[in-house]
Design a protein around this nucleic acid. Structure first.
Lengths: 345, 345
DNA sequence: CTGAAAGCGCTAACAA
DNA sequence: TTGTTAGCGCTTTCAG
C-alpha cells in the first residue's frame, strides 16, 4: 500500500492535535471547534486525499457500516432485483452490502447469518426466512437490527417487506371468475414459508370473496417452487377427475410445470384449462401461451427493505416492539393468453 | 452486544498471557507452543465461544478477509450465477463478498471499486470491465489483487475468466453452414467490451474457417445487448436487401429483438431466416421458436474466478507479470427450432 | 476551544 | 516456550 494518509498526517499538516483533526472531520463533533481550525483541517484532509480507515474507526465505534443480506439462492429470478434495490439504497448512504446464501442443500457451510454476525455487520436483511425463523440470540434480542424481505415470519416478530399475496390472489381469482370459471384449483408452494402459505390462504379467501363453492375448488401442494413439482401436482390434479377449468399456480415455474403436464395429455391451455402464474419472470410474456401472471415490484421491495433497515440503524431502538405487520407492496395482474373464457371450446 | 468474549478473557481463563493465547489460536504461530498450553487455550476458547474480532485483527494484519465484486447490474441473467459461484467459493474459506454495481446510468454514486478500496478489501472481482479498463492506482499497481470475469481487457493486463467466444462462434457458424446457409449476418453487441468485440471477431474468423465469402456476410452493430437494439439492427439488416438467410446475434436478447423484427415483417423464423442467440438465458428453450443458442458455464466462471483470486491472495505477488491470456471456458451449442435448413421454404 | 491520554481487540517484534 | 511491549488508526473522555 502506498502509505495511506492517516489522521495523524492530516493533523501534523494542519498544525493541530490529532484529536482536533478527528473532531473537525466528524460532523457531530465539529460544532465545538472554531470555524477557522475546522475549515483548515477539512481543507488539508481534502488536499492530502485523506480517507478514514474503516477498520480503525469501526474498532472504536463498534460499527462497520456494513449490512449482510441472506438470500435462499441467486438463481430464483426475483432475488437479484431485491438485491439490487437494497444495494443501491444502502450504498447511497455509505453502507456496504455483504451477500450470503443459505441453500439448505449444502449444510457444511456455516449459516450465513452467523458469518455476518461474526463480521460485526450493523444490520441484516433476510430474504430466506421460514415461517418459523429462529435466528441466533443476538438477532433475537434485537442487538443487530434485522428486516425480512420477500418472506415474512409467522409471529410478526420481525419487520418485513413482502408482496401483497391476498390482493394478488384476489386479482387472479376475480379474473378467472370473470372468465366464467367456477372450478378452480390451486397449486401451492411450500407451506412452511410465507409466500407458499399466504398465497394458498389468499386463494381460499378469494374463493369466498367471489362466492365460489369451496367444495368445487381444491389445493394441490407442490413440494417446492420448481416446475417439476408443478408438473407432479398438476398430474395429480388432472388424475382427480374433478373437472377443474382453471389452475392458479403459486409461482411462474409451477405454472409452467402445470402447462407441461396439461399439454402432455393432449389438452390445451387455455382452451381446456386456464393457468395463471405469479412473479412475471423474464420471458413468460413471450411464451405460447403467454402466461397470465402477477407482477410484484421486487426491486422496490429491496429499496424499501434497505430504507427500513437504515431507519432502524439510525433510531437504534433495542426495545422488543409489538408484532410487526408486514409491509405489503401492491401486485399487478398481467392478463395474457394462458387464461381464457370457460367453455370457449 | 452481550459483552463479546475477547482474547483477554480467554487468556485469563486459561491462565496464560494474552499473546500466548493469540499464538495458540493462530495456526501459523501455534508451532512454537507446548502442545499442552495450546490445547488448553483452544479448549477454553471453544468453551467460552470466543470469536476473534475481525476489525481488530484486520487493523493489525491489514487484511479484511473480504473481497469486493463489481457487476454491471444484477438484472442481466448471467450475472447472478457468476456471483453465486464466486460467493460460494470465497465463503468456504472464510472470505466475505461485498457486492457493488456500476451502472453507467447513475454517475452520482461513487465507483464501486473505489468504495471497495476504501473498505480495504483484500481483492477484487470485476465483472463490468471495459476493454480499456483503467482502475485506480492501487489496483493498477497490483496492491489489491484483481481478477476479471465475464469480460476481459484489451491488453491482458489482468487475469480474466471468460467464455470462449471463438469456440462458440465457430460452433454456431458451423451449425448454420451445415444447414446450408452461406449468407449470414452478425448482430454485434457493444464493441468496447470484450464480449461484444470477441464475438464479432469470432464470427468473422468462423466465416473464414468455413470458407464463406466475407463479402456475402456482414456485421450490424447494436448499441447495446438489449432486445430493442437487436430489433433496430435487424431492421437495418432486413432493409439492406442483401438476402441474408441467417442471423447470429451476440446474445439472446438481441436475438429475440431480431425475431421480433423479422416476424413484424410477416417473415418466419426459421423458414425465412434462422436466428441464433448466446447465453441460453432462462426460458428461451420454451419460446416459439425455441432459440438455438450458446450456453456458457457461468456459475463455474464465478467459481474459477474466486479460486484464482484466492491463489493471488495467497501468493501475494506484487510483480507486474507478463500479459495474461484469459482463461476461456468451453461453450455448448444448443440446437433448437430457431434455426433450420436454408431453402426449406 | 484544544491538547493529552486512554484504549477498542488484536498481532508481532523483542526479551527472557 | 512464554511474557512484555508496542502499536494498527481512530474516537472520546478528561483536563487545561
Amino acid at each position: 500500500m502506498a502509505k495511506a494518509i492517516t489522521l495523524k498526517d492530516v493533523a501534523r499538516e494542519a498544525g493541530v492535535h490529532i484529536s482536533t483533526a478527528s473532531r473537525a472531520l466528524n460532523e457531530e463533533t465539529r460544532s465545538g471547534l472554531s470555524a477557522e481550525t475546522a475549515d483548515r483541517v477539512i481543507a488539508t484532509a481534502e488536499r492530502l486525499g485523506y480517507q478514514p480507515h474503516p477498520l480503525a474507526r469501526g474498532l472504536r465505534t463498534n460499527r462497520t457500516r456494513s449490512v449482510g443480506m441472506v438470500v435462499p439462492d441467486l438463481i430464483s429470478p426475483f432475488i437479484p432485483p431485491i438485491l439490487a434495490g437494497a444495494q443501491h439504497t444502502l450504498s447511497e448512504v455509505g453502507y456496504s452490502l455483504l451477500i450470503g446464501s443459505d441453500d439448505e442443500s449444502s449444510p457444511r457451510t456455516r449459516p450465513a447469518v452467523e458469518t455476518f454476525l461474526e463480521r460485526r455487520v450493523d444490520g441484516l436483511i433476510v430474504a430466506n426466512a421460514h415461517l418459523e425463523f429462529t435466528p441466533p440470540d443476538a438477532v433475537q434480542r434485537r442487538e443487530v437490527p434485522t428486516v425480512l424481505v420477500s418472506r415474512c415470519v409467522a409471529d410478526g416478530s420481525f419487520p418485513a417487506i413482502v408482496g401483497d399475496d391476498q390482493a394478488a390472489l384476489s386479482l387472479v381469482v376475480r379474473h378467472l371468475v370473470e372468465l366464467g370459471h367456477t372450478r378452480i384449483a390451486h397449486v401451492a408452494g411450500p407451506l412452511d414459508i410465507s409466500t407458499g402459505l399466504f398465497r394458498r390462504d389468499g386463494f381460499i379467501n378469494a374463493l369466498a370473496e367471489e362466492g365460489l363453492a369451496a367444495s368445487d375448488c381444491r389445493v394441490f401442494e407442490a413440494g417446492s417452487f420448481h416446475s417439476e413439482d408443478g408438473h407432479a401436482a398438476c398430474s395429480r390434479l388432472l388424475d382427480s377427475g374433478d373437472g377443474y377449468t382453471a389452475i392458479v399456480a403459486a409461482n411462474d415455474l409451477l405454472a409452467l410445470g402445470c402447462i407441461d403436464a396439461i399439454q402432455e395429455r393432449g389438452l390445451s391451455v387455455p382452451r381446456d384449462l386456464s393457468v395463471t402464474g405469479y412473479d412475471d419472470i423474464a420471458l413468460v410474456d413471450r411464451l405460447d401461451p403467454a402466461l397470465t401472471t402477477i407482477s410484484l415490484p421486487y426491486e422496490e421491495m429491496g429499496v424499501v427493505a434497505g430504507r427500513l433497515l437504515l431507519d432502524l440503524l439510525a433510531s437504534d431502538v433495542e426495545t422488543v416492539e409489538t408484532p410487526h405487520e408486514p409491509k405489503r407492496l401492491a401486485p399487478t395482474l398481467f392478463v395474457r393468453s394462458s387464461t381464457g373464457s370457460v367453455g370457449s371450446t
